[in-house]
Amino acid sequence: MTAQTPTTAPADDAPLEVPVLDLSGMRRPDGSFDPDFLARLRHAAHHVGFFQIVGYGAQPGQVEDLFRVTAEFFARPEAEKMALHNQNSPHWRGYSAVAAERTQGRPDSREQLDFSPDREPVPAERIGADEQYWHLQGRNQWPAQMPQLEEQAMAWTALMDRVGEELLGALCVAIGLDEDHFADAFDRDRAWMAKLAHYVGGVAEAGSQGVGLHADYGFITLLLQDEVGGLEVRPYGQDEWLPVEPIPGALVVNLGEMLEVATDGYLMATIHRVQSPPEGVDRYSVPFFYSPRLDAVVDRVELPAELAAQARGVSDDPDNPMLASFGANMLKGFARAHPAVTQRFHPHLLG
C-alpha cells in the first residue's frame, strides 16, 4: 500500500498527555488508514512516545482470565516457581524472583516469567563472534502444574503480534513510508518477547523502584496493566514525569530504540519507569515486545522533508549505545538486566 498524508493533529504546543486511540477506527471501510487516526498517532508517537489503545480485538473475558492465571501462578509455592528459574536457561527464559532483575544497576521490586517464541536452540558451535544474539533463541519454561498459564499467555501473544503488525504499518504510513516498509525485518521467525510480571511493594533493597528508568530496545511495546497504576513516562525535553493512568482492558503502547534509530529520533524511545505499589498491594502487568528476527538490521529511513527537519537525533547513552542490529540490542539488554544468568552461561558478554 502506498503512503498517505495525515491531515489534522493536536496543536504541537498543547499540554502533553498520554492520548487514547481506538484501533477499531484505524481503517476506513475500503481498508485504507483513516487520515485523522494517522494524524493523532503521529502526534502521540513524536511528542509523547506513549499512548493507549482500545478496540484492539481482545475476546470477552480474555483480559480478566489472563490476569487471573497470572496471579495464580505468582501465588504458587516458591519452590514451584524456582523450578523454572531463568538461571537454568542459557536463553534468559523463565522465572526471576523479586529484586533479581536490575535496571540502571539497581534491583527491581518485581518477580516475573519471561518467554518468547519456543524454538530449538542454535548450537553454540554455529554461533559466530558477531552473532552472539542467537543465544537468545531457545525453549520456554512453563509450570507443568498449570497448563492453562501457557495456553492463555501464548494466545495473548498471538493477538499482540497481530496488533503490533497493524500498528507498525500505521506508524509507517503516518510518517510518509509504505505500510510494509519493515516487512523484510519481520519476515519469518519474529523474536518477540513477553513477560508476566508481579510488582511487590515494601522491598527494602529496591525501595520505590518497581522498574528503574529505561527505554525499550525493540520496535513497539504493548503493555497490559491492571488498575493499580505506577507507570510514569518522561517525554523528550520534559523534566516532569507523566503518569499513565490505567484504563481497564486498554493497552499502553510505547516505541522502542529500533524506531528511534530508524527515524533519527523523529520517533522516540521514551524513558519510563514503574513505581512500586504500596506495601501489601499487588500490581500485575503483561508486557509484549513486538520485534523482528534476531538477525534483522534496521537502516535509517528517508522521512519527508517536513518530518526530517523535526528529527531530534538519536538520544544515545555512551554507557548503553543503541545498535542497528536488533539481536545485538536485545542481547545487550538481557545481559545487563540478568547478570547472574549471563555470568553462568555467557561470561564473555560481561567483559
Rank of each mutant, 00 (worst) to 15 (best):
A204T: 15
G218L: 09
E17A: 02
V122L: 07
S291I: 11
F345C: 03
P243K: 12
L294C: 03
R40L: 07
E120S: 14
V211H: 01
L84E: 14
F51N: 00
G229C: 05
A155H: 06
R106Q: 13
L177H: 06
V203N: 13
E260D: 00
A158F: 02
V301E: 02
Q112R: 15
G207E: 00
G57F: 07
Q87R: 10
Q52R: 15
D264K: 04
G49S: 04
I271W: 05
S32E: 15
P77G: 10
D13Y: 06
F186D: 05
A129W: 02
G212E: 06
V211E: 06
E125L: 02
N254S: 09
Q112K: 12
W241V: 11
G265R: 13
L242F: 07
D295Y: 10
L251V: 06
S325T: 13
G327D: 09
P29I: 07
G218V: 09
H135N: 08
E165H: 15
E72W: 00
L251P: 05
W192A: 11
A14T: 15
E260N: 05
A170Y: 07
Y133N: 12
H47F: 02
P248C: 04
I271S: 12
E232Q: 15
M26N: 09
L149P: 01
D184C: 08
Y95L: 07
A45D: 05
L350P: 06
A250Y: 04
V274S: 01
E80L: 12
L222G: 10
F74C: 05
P287D: 08
H348L: 11
W156A: 02
V63W: 08
Q275K: 12
T263R: 06
E302I: 13
A206S: 15
D184V: 13
H348T: 12
T103G: 09
P77T: 10
R273N: 07
M160H: 10
V341L: 13
D319C: 02
R293S: 08
P321K: 11
K81T: 00
R190H: 03
D12E: 15
D226L: 07
Q52I: 07
Y284W: 09
L294G: 05
N320Q: 14
M26E: 12
G176I: 10
G138K: 14
Y217D: 03
E80Q: 15
A170H: 09
L38R: 01
E245V: 14
P287L: 04
R283E: 09
D239W: 03
R93W: 05
L38G: 05
E166F: 01
E151W: 01
F51S: 05
I53D: 01
V48N: 03
G327L: 13
E101W: 04
V286F: 11
T7P: 02
F326T: 00
F326R: 06
L66V: 11
F33P: 05
M26F: 10
H135W: 11
P77W: 14
R234E: 04
R28D: 00
H338Y: 15
L323S: 07
A250W: 04
A79W: 08
G327K: 12
F219A: 08
G210W: 06
V173F: 11
P121A: 06
A305Y: 07
V274L: 09
D299P: 10
E179C: 00
L136N: 15
V63S: 13
V69A: 08
A174I: 07
R106F: 11
E205K: 14
D187G: 12
V314D: 02
